[in-house]
């Protein structure tokens, strides 16, 4: 069945079953491989994208439920907050293996879009759905704070 979806501002028609998780539509049908597969059951956050600007675990979201929703992936983020986060990530050398980091960056952008000056508790709440098996958490926290400072200044 042909399904029409809007991703990163571009409309696509994809021919997949309606129960296909958004993650596999993005990766296999659209070739947007920045969004990763880590668990498939909404536990790890590697597949985090935005649906209408809000973070979503795309591995557990059937494409049929998307309706008119607009999807943004790591390939499509831009703007001041995204730039501040990605710069902070690079300046702190946050990534180790890097595989979880698309999801971490997406969750961090979502947090800073809502809360300009997150406390440690805000960070815990916004980021604890994103597992990093390399445990780069010390730097993830520090980079979020760096990005928040850049955005204030």
């Amino acid at each position: 069945m042909a399904i029409s979806i809007k991703v990163n501002g571009v409309r696509h028609s994809v021919d997949v079953d309606g129960d296909t998780p958004l993650l596999w539509v993005l990766r296999d049908a659209l070739g947007l491989t920045g969004t990763k597969f880590g668990c498939g059951i909404a536990q790890c956050g590697a597949c985090t994208v935005f649906l209408n600007g809000k973070p979503l675990r795309s591995c557990a979201f059937p494409i049929a439920a998307l309706g008119d929703g607009e999807v943004t992936t790591i390939e499509g983020v831009n703007g001041r907050t995204a730039r501040a986060v990605q710069r902070a990530w690079t300046a702190r050398d946050v990534p180790q293996c890097g595989y979880c980091q698309s999801g971490q960056v997406m969750s961090a952008i979502a947090l800073l879009s809502e809360v300009r000056r997150p406390t440690d508790r805000d960070i815990d709440l916004a980021m604890n759905g994103n597992i990093c098996r390399c445990a780069a958490y010390v730097r993830i926290r520090a980079a979020i704070k760096d990005a928040a400072r850049t955005l204030e200044g």
């Binding site: 790591i74 986060v85 990530w89 946050v94 990534p95 980091q101 960056v105």
Partner: peptide, 14 residues
């Protein structure tokens, strides 16, 4: 600085 940070922060690392 690490050589692989940027591509891992923007999803382009393969």
């Amino acid at each position: 600085r690490r050589l692989d940070s940027a591509s891992k922060a923007n999803g382009t690392a393969q």
